[in-house]
């Protein structure tokens, strides 16, 4: 029998009520609308989507920051939802946030920040040494433990955030736009680090981004999220070469590229010139699309 995937989402849903005046519920937003995916050990799964696609809600549910309306989240084949899920099991998934400037406490030294998860999860052994080892892992000098975030560059801060996420030896990292705040040369080095960690520690990543060029290079599998649904999924090279869904094509057509070869890869579609539809507009559009599908 093969090992279960590191992460499996089964028909995950999250519905938010839309409230009108006096708190009356006037409708609902299906932020995540039946998402299923699996990520095998050592793989990078890229979740591509724009604002409002539901990608952050998915990340929040995996991290236990939001309760799914229905569906299941399995880590190594065991559900992490509900009361029976143990903290020890939960800690095997950690997250790296988008803006390292905001996700590190400015009044804590690097070492103190990295110790927080060690203390919270009651790690055993010499914690000071462990902090040093973690800094080694993210290729920062050990004396950085005594520095404050404002003394570090953006790339160094993000390395600290990665070290903090690695502190409790997770199986899965949820990377939410981990390099979008960084310069491109710094981004390249952080991505290299993340790749080497997959090889060294056997990590698995859920990589959330709207940077499709980066996704093409970093992920093996891609899922395109639109209005809470994965509209297209597959090996990243294949999906980008021959996108099937209109939204994937629109995304690819929008990517600013730097060479003629890349430009040749972009589908040519007229970009919408008017206003961006609101969530309600999009829901209405989807209803229409469903009706159309039902007819054909």
């Amino acid at each position: 029998m093969t090992a279960p995937p590191v992460l499996e989402l089964r028909d995950l849903r999250k519905v938010f009520p839309v409230k009108g005046s006096f708190g009356r519920v006037t409708g609902e937003v299906r932020a995540v609308d039946g998402v299923s995916l699996t990520i095998p050990q050592g793989q990078v799964y890229g979740l591509a989507g724009e604002s409002g696609s539901g990608k952050s809600t998915i990340a929040r549910m995996i991290m236990g920051l939001a309760e799914p309306t229905s569906g299941d989240i399995l880590l190594d084949g065991v559900s992490i939802l509900g009361r029976q899920a143990s903290l020890a099991h939960r800690q095997r998934v950690q997250m790296v946030f988008q803006n390292p400037g905001a996700s590190l406490n400015p009044r804590r030294t690097v070492g103190q920040s990295i110790r927080v998860p060690l203390d919270a999860h009651g790690a055993s052994g010499d914690r000071r040494r462990r902090v040093g080892d973690l800094l080694d892992m993210v290729q920062l000098p050990r004396h950085f433990a005594d520095r404050y975030p404002h003394e570090l560059s953006g790339g160094q801060k993000q390395r600290v955030a990665i070290a903090r996420a690695l502190a409790v030896e997770p199986r899965l990292l949820v990377l939410d736009e981990p390099t979008s705040a960084l310069d491109v040369s710094v981004q390249a080095r952080v991505i290299e680090l993340l790749e080497s960690l997959v090889a060294d520690l056997g990590l698995t990543y859920l990589f959330i981004s709207h940077d499709l060029s980066l996704m093409r290079n970093f992920a093996q599998t891609v899922g395109v999220l639109y209005l809470g649904k994965i509209v297209e999924t597959g090996p990243v090279a294949q999906v980008f070469r021959a996108p099937q869904h209109d939204y994937t094509r629109l995304l690819l057509a929008s990517v600013p590229v730097i060479s003629a070869e890349e430009e040749a890869m972009r589908p040519v579609i007229p970009l919408i010139n008017g206003e961006i539809p609101t969530a309600e507009d999009l829901l209405a559009l989807r209803e229409q699309a469903n009706l159309k599908e039902a007819k054909t």
Binding site: Q187, N217, F240, L252, I258, S259, E261, M265
Partner: peptide, 27 residues
Amino acid sequence: QSIFDAPREEYTRSLIAAVPRLTGRDA
């Protein structure tokens, strides 16, 4: 386009090399 296709300076070269390509690494 000529800068992007054939950068003359070392810095420009490294900057352009750091940009992830839609075509993937090998292309």
